[in-house]
Amino acid sequence: MTQTTSEKHVGFKVDEAAGQALSLWFNDSIEFAHGCRISVRIKDVLCHYRSRFQEIAVFETERLGRMLVLDNITMLTEFDEAAYHEMIVHVPLLTHPRPVKVLVIGGGDGGTIREVLKHPSVEEVHLCELDEEVVKACRAHIPSLACAFDDPRVKAYYEDGAKFVKERPAAYDVIIVDSTDPIGPGQVLFQRPFYADMYSALKEDGMVVTQCESIHLHREVIRGVADFAKEIYPRIGYYYTLVPTYPSGVIGFMCCSRRYDPLRDFDEKRAEVLTDLRYYTPEIHRAAFVLPRFAHGLV
């Protein structure tokens, strides 16, 4: 593969060891991870371009399958995406007794809606993604996730998620926020007004689950969200999953509910009949809410 100056811009690194061919690496450059980053050996660049909102790249990696990168930050790899997508979806959808209408904010790769559609009660899924080019790139290059966009129950909107929920009162059984980190445009999704607007966008017994960072690296972010969320929602909780290609290997979720408790009310019988799962189990559902000693008191 011919190396170009643009590769340096998106975090490529080329190593030439004695007697070995050139090898191409992607270096995740996120500054939000307290100086942590990972390097992934890649075989090919499937796409790399700038949309109106961000830089988009999809790589074929040597060991991790295909990899989506936005603004030089790893969003997912096929190797471990199930640990994230299954946990952000099945915890709330197995807690709510009959989720019919679901909103996904972000999630343009399609992995979250793929998991939502595994629940037979779901009749309608709205996806609100700011950047349509993310969806196009994933449909073209990561069909293992983006195949869900072909389902007739899915309707995609390309607009600002914070504005979207403000305009839809009492509309959804479950809202899932599959967001980027609280930097740049993603900051608003970690603030009190957005959580209040989501509360209003839920039906009277609705639930929200949001991506809410790592207990190892971002405890102040988690504590800040929990402090205002507990003033809005009758029940909140925090749980986590293990994703090796994310900084610290751990990513967590804030669960906010108008009625149901994710430990007391989740339906284990429905969980047992879900198919094509790689990570989620009822036992992991329960265990994910048990935080290590250093994280006690965050929520």
Rank of each mutant, 00 (worst) to 15 (best):
M75C: 08
A137R: 03
V116T: 11
L277V: 12
D150W: 06
I142P: 07
F266D: 07
I30D: 15
L127S: 12
Y238D: 01
G11M: 02
Y195L: 10
M67V: 00
H85R: 01
G107V: 06
Y260L: 05
G224F: 03
R235F: 15
R192L: 11
P247S: 01
M75L: 04
A83M: 01
R223C: 07
R286D: 10
R37E: 12
H9M: 14
A229S: 08
V208H: 03
K136P: 10
A140S: 14
E62V: 11
C138L: 03
V14H: 13
L93V: 02
E123R: 07
L130I: 07
C147G: 11
F289M: 07
D197P: 04
V208N: 05
E220K: 13
K166V: 14
H34N: 14
V209C: 04
V45N: 06
T241D: 08
A17Y: 14
Y157T: 08
V104F: 06
V125T: 09
I113L: 12
E204D: 15
D131L: 03
H285I: 04
L291C: 03
Y279V: 12
H96T: 05
A57G: 08
A170R: 15
L189A: 02
T2Y: 09
L145N: 01
G206M: 10
G297V: 01
V45W: 00
A162Q: 09
M1Y: 09
T245V: 01
C256D: 10
R98Y: 10
E272L: 12
P152C: 04
R114T: 00
I56L: 08
P247K: 02
K155L: 10
V221A: 06
R153C: 08
P143I: 11
D181H: 09
E132S: 15
T210A: 12
C212S: 15
R114Y: 05
T241Y: 00
S51P: 06
P234A: 04
M75R: 12
P97D: 11
F289Q: 06
L145S: 12
H119W: 05
I251P: 08
R278A: 14
K136C: 12
V188T: 13
F228Y: 00
E115M: 01
A288P: 08
K203D: 07
H34C: 15
S200M: 13
V100T: 09
I113T: 06
D109C: 06
G35W: 01
S121A: 14
S248V: 02
P143L: 13
T74K: 04
L202R: 12
I232W: 02
E7N: 13
P152G: 00
R66E: 03
N72E: 14
A21D: 15
P244Y: 00
Y49M: 08
P99H: 06
R168V: 01
T77P: 04
R264I: 04
A137N: 00
G249E: 00
G19K: 08
K136G: 11
V89M: 10
D197N: 08
V243N: 00
L117N: 09
D197G: 07
P143D: 05
L127V: 13
D109M: 03
F149Q: 10
H126N: 14
R223P: 07
G186Q: 01
G107C: 01
G186L: 10
H48L: 13
F12S: 12
E7W: 15
F164C: 02
L202P: 02
M1N: 09
A140N: 05
H34M: 15
K136N: 14
C128A: 02
V209S: 07
G252P: 04
